[in-house]
Amino acid sequence: MSSFAVFGNPIRHSKSAEIYALFAHEIGISKEYHLKLAVQDNFNYLLHNFFKLGGLGANITSPFKENAYFLCNQLTERAEQARSVNTIKKLKNGTLLGDNTDGVGFISDLKRLNWLDNNNHIASHDKPTMVTSILLIGAGGAAKGIIPMLLTTITTCHINIVNRTFSRAQEITSYYQEIGYKNISCLPLYKLRYDTNKYSLIINATTSNIHNTIPKIPSFLVTPDTKCYDLFYTKKDTLFITWCKKNGANYCADGLGMLVGQAAHSFFLWHNLFPTIDPVINHLRSALYM
């Protein structure tokens, strides 16, 4: 039985095992890490059986993060607020602790990119504003994972959510407002054409790249100083990043750094040792071009 594993569907192209192996080699840990393909009908059974037979930790990827949330005995605050779990640790008493490292992994990557300054403001080469406006495109699991950390980390920020299905954006906005966050709102996608906000950070948290499309947002929202981040990553620039650059964005990044960042925080939860992130990002980036 492997000590660690990632559960998802699809799972064949997951980088989790490779990332874990690189971290483990650096730290000097020898543990197995396997890929576990699951479906909705057997995910709960496979996960419980994994831990019953000696598993120590698990990563959870799409589409099971919300399922995992309900299977844990304890939750970290960030998992509780995200209402989804991407990392589980089996505690010494046998109970399962659920965490969500997506948000902290995202913040780690913003810092790595020098997009956050020492005061946790979005770094700006333009005239600074009193409130950092963030446009979050998408209201699914990926968005839920990063919203709490954005709201609690970035100084004086306000998140505006747009989504193809507006009711979904309303639902997620209402949830965070109800638990005390007032600096979040939403609007229908078509109303962006009348939006006068100057966004410091635009995040694509949709699956548009999988469908070979880009979110339908007005190009005037992108300026040379706007930071544009796509949670997706590909061998070349994603379609969204290509579109942002075409419309004048000078600061663009894909989600590979976030992927490694969230994995590093999962590793820390399991082993209480934090691995080095940059060499792993560089390794994976080089491998994409091989």
Rank of each mutant, 00 (worst) to 15 (best):
T152M: 07
T155S: 13
A139L: 08
Y176N: 03
F166C: 07
G138Y: 00
T155C: 12
F166H: 11
Y176E: 08
E178M: 09
L151P: 12
T152E: 15
S167L: 15
I146D: 02
C157R: 04
C157Q: 11
T153R: 02
N163Q: 09
S167Y: 14
P148K: 13
P148I: 06
Y176D: 05
K144A: 03
T173K: 13
V162L: 05
G141H: 10
T156C: 13
P148T: 11
I154F: 05
T173G: 15
T152Q: 13
H158S: 00
T173V: 15
A143I: 00
I154L: 02
I159F: 09
F166T: 10
R168K: 14
E178L: 14
I161Y: 06
I179F: 06
G140C: 05
G141Q: 06
I154H: 03
I147Q: 07
S174W: 10
E178H: 15
Q170G: 06
C157H: 09
T156S: 13
L151R: 12
I172A: 09
A139C: 09
A143W: 00
I161H: 08
G138T: 05
L150E: 11
T152K: 11
A139S: 14
Y175D: 13
L150S: 09
I146V: 05
Y175R: 13
E178W: 07
N163E: 13
H158K: 05
T153H: 06
Q170A: 10
T153E: 06
R168F: 03
T153P: 01
N160Y: 01
S167H: 12
I147K: 11
R168E: 08
N160F: 00
A142D: 02
G138P: 07
N163P: 13
R164N: 02
K144D: 00
T156N: 11
P148M: 11
I146H: 03
M149E: 13
I137K: 01
V162T: 06
Q170Y: 04
V162M: 08
S174E: 14
I146E: 02
R168M: 06
T152W: 10
N160T: 07
I137S: 01
P148H: 13
S174Y: 08
Q177C: 15
H158Y: 04
K144N: 02
F166W: 10
Y176F: 15
E171I: 01
I137H: 01
Q170S: 11
I172L: 14
I159W: 08
V162N: 03
N163F: 12
L150D: 15
